[in-house]
């Protein structure tokens, strides 16, 4: 009886429940950061990694695509971590950003988006070819997935790719996002990611908004607005280039044109 009442409360207040859990996870993560790593590994990095592990375990248990949010009592995570509040919070971080810096490194940021999209498309396409894909539609769709998990399916749908190739492209984009989330704090100092200019370039090169948003949060939240700003333009550029110019080039190379 008590269990039913508790479960009812948690479902009725699922977003509130998510706030409470995330608060507890962050508290534990910052404690662990101080206790075990003397603050060397950022508390938010630990919290984000814990979130990813929880998402993996949940996915295995429920078979669903939404991590923790596939448990009815934890559906609030889907709202809290969904695109609506994520974008709202990302925009709010711009309040601390410096307009003059943005203006100064804007051109380098724009260039990094174009180069970043190009590099990802080529990387994904080369891997697709190495794994035996021979038709331009599949090669381009997998390449587009290596850009972001939105560019992949948008491109695949536009070109008429098969559903298993589209699923692969989404997976490639997810892998990228997760690697960027976990990896950014690990390699930040080695690639000089410690100033707003470098963050703008990094966001433009990586392009995965969720990956960059979480990666920079775990590295230095002050850099987050700069990286997120350029990353949000990347998916649009990818959706523009992948099914058009890139597809035509790949078709020439595969001899389909």
């Amino acid at each position: 009886m008590i269990a039913d009442i508790v479960a009812h409360s948690l479902r009725a207040y699922s977003l509130i429940f998510a706030f409470a859990i995330v608060g507890a996870v962050i508290w534990l993560s910052y404690g662990a950061s101080n206790l075990f790593t003397k603050g060397r590994i950022h508390g938010s990095a630990i919290a984000i990694a814990a979130g990813l592990v929880a998402a993996y375990v949940s996915g295995r248990m429920t078979g669903g695509p939404k991590g923790l949010a596939d448990f009815p009592a934890l559906a609030g995570f889907g709202v809290m971590g969904g695109a609506m509040l994520r974008d709202f919070a990302i925009v709010s971080t711009a309040f601390g950003a410096d307009l003059a810096t943005l203006r100064k490194v804007g051109p380098a940021g724009a260039l990094s988006i174009v180069i970043g999209v190009g590099l990802s498309l080529v990387a994904g396409a080369v891997i697709a070819v190495a794994f035996g894909y021979k038709d331009a539609v599949s090669i381009v769709t997998i390449g587009a997935g290596a850009a972001t998990y939105i560019v992949g399916p948008v491109t695949g749908a536009a070109l008429g790719a098969t559903s298993d190739v589209i699923a692969l492209s989404v997976a490639a984009g997810l892998v990228k996002a997760i690697v960027v989330m976990i990896g950014t704090p690990l390699w930040a100092s080695r690639i000089g990611l410690n100033n707003p200019g470098a963050a703008i370039v990094y966001g433009g090169l990586m392009g995965t908004t969720s990956g960059v948003a979480a990666g920079l949060a775990a590295t230095d939240p002050k850099l987050a607005p700069y990286g997120a700003m350029s990353a949000t333009f990347y998916t649009g550029v990818g959706c523009l280039v992948a099914p058009s110019v890139f597809y035509l080039v790949v078709r020439l190379l595969t001899g389909e044109a």
Partner: peptide, 15 residues
Amino acid sequence: YIPIVVAMAATQNVA
């Protein structure tokens, strides 16, 4: 922002 990002990480299709 960071708490929302943590919730976002927990809802990724990692599996």
